[in-house]
């Protein structure tokens, strides 16, 4: 009962955050929204596991949190620097 209500609330918040990811004027709004969406996915996986009576899905939630962090940092770096590789003659790092 609690878990079903929590799942509905999380799904509603995911809708709002996805709206921001689609609308967001700057690319940083979209990155932020996608990061928040990933966090909400972690919560949803955990709650849905307890809702179904099978909390073993938590491994997937943990993995999703890891991938979410790496992905957000990588996309931010790519957007600012226009590339992901090492520093060389034609590509100079922006001082982040």
């Amino acid at each position: 009962m609690i878990m079903a209500a929590a799942t509905l609330a999380i799904l509603a918040v995911m809708g709002m955050v996805l709206a921001r990811a689609l609308l967001g004027p700057t690319v940083f709004d979209r990155i932020l929204a996608v990061n928040a969406f990933g966090t909400l996915t972690v919560i949803l996986i955990a709650v849905a596991g307890f809702l179904a009576g099978r909390p073993e899905f938590l491994d997937i939630a943990l993995l999703y949190a890891l991938i979410n962090f790496i992905g957000t940092i990588a996309v931010t770096k790519y957007v600012v620097n226009d590339f992901l590789g090492e520093r060389d003659a034609e590509h100079n790092w922006t001082d982040l």
Binding site: T26, F28, I31, L32, N35, F69, T72, I73, T76, K77, V79, V80, T94, D95, L96
Partner: peptide, 14 residues
């Protein structure tokens, strides 16, 4: 906090 900090600095630099 790491993601928020990196994103805020990226937005300021941009």
């Amino acid at each position: 906090p790491v993601v928020t900090h990196a994103l805020a600095r990226a937005a300021l630099v941009a």
